[in-house]
Design a binder for these strands. Sequence first.
DNA 1: AAGTATCTACCTAGTAGTAGGCAGGCATTC
DNA 2: GAATGCCTGCCTACTACTAGGTAGATACTT
Lengths: 187, 187
Amino acid sequence: MTDTKTALLRSAERAARTKGFDGFSYADLAADVGIRKASIHHHFPAKADLTLAVMQRYHVAFAETCDRIDAAHTTGGARLHALIAAYRSALGNGEMVCLCVAFSISRDHITTDVRAAMGDFRQMMLEWLTATFTRGNGDGTIAQVADPAAEARAALALLEGAQLAARTQADPTAFDAALALMSSRLG
Amino acid sequence: MTDTKTALLRSAERAARTKGFDGFSYADLAADVGIRKASIHHHFPAKADLTLAVMQRYHVAFAETCDRIDAAHTTGGARLHALIAAYRSALGNGEMVCLCVAFSISRDHITTDVRAAMGDFRQMMLEWLTATFTRGNGDGTIAQVADPAAEARAALALLEGAQLAARTQADPTAFDAALALMSSRLG
DNA sequence: AAGTATCTACCTAGTAGTAGGCAGGCATTC
DNA sequence: GAATGCCTGCCTACTACTAGGTAGATACTT
């Protein structure tokens, strides 16, 4: 039996990524985890606390994913390919989007510290992508790189947009289709 | 004085695009339009009816935008540039996203006919984009077009992702930054 | 005995939606 | 031409339900 706090974080992350911040409730989490609604407040006094904890957990987990990718692959092309695969597998069966995407819509309903955490996450991703495009340009494993920072911003938008496409169509292959062009540039 | 039904549609579209489907209520619309909450039900019996009407109105309006672009510009590059500008201006000050993006998150909370309308909208955009990339490839005003259909899918994801970036950062220039690479391909 | 985790039972505020009424416009009918 | 009846648009006042959150009791652990 995993501890309840972690179970709540997991459930909340899944709920947020499938239904958005305004789309899930403490009642949903309680039913999912198997405790009473009021008991959640013992672990997370307010929804804002839970939301921030979910965001921070997500950030740490994704940073670790990036580290693992860097450790497993040396070329820029291979690393970008692995990141695309990570985003793709995070999709589930086309029902989940990145936490940032899910929270972006509810931007005005979340607290400023969660918004700040979203900004931190995006910043981390942009830096990693910029470094990866720079490397891929240097080692020749990513074609036609002119400006690594511009590539990074476009790639992040593309990854997030592709998740939306997959979700809208309830079809994970829509993600692949949206990324086909970028993938074809990787050697 | 515009008629109340149209005022409601306008208010609902704005609310949906800034707060998402789960983020706005009849009370919000009532306060915005200046009638009582219950009176909205006179025009739209259920929220699902209103939502569908908003989506259909949006679809028609965007189709007209595409027609206007086609009438005003002949080259593929100029047309794509104009579409990017249309998406950019629809952003407002970085607080509004496309209806499809907003509803995508709440996919499981909206009715099937609204989901179908979202699919129709995306299909229309993909067809228009494919035709535009084909034209831009033929007349040489869009560089490096290999597969117009793949370009269309990537472009739509990029446009929607760029809107999310602008919204997350509350900064419309984030949209420009995400699209800089694609814009540089247009002659 | 103390602290942690959970419970039942409740609260306030807000959700979509309903019931029934009222004022005024526009016909038709006597 | 006045009376009748129907319609639109909006109202007040309500229902049933869900939201996040609280208080206090109870059980389990150490």
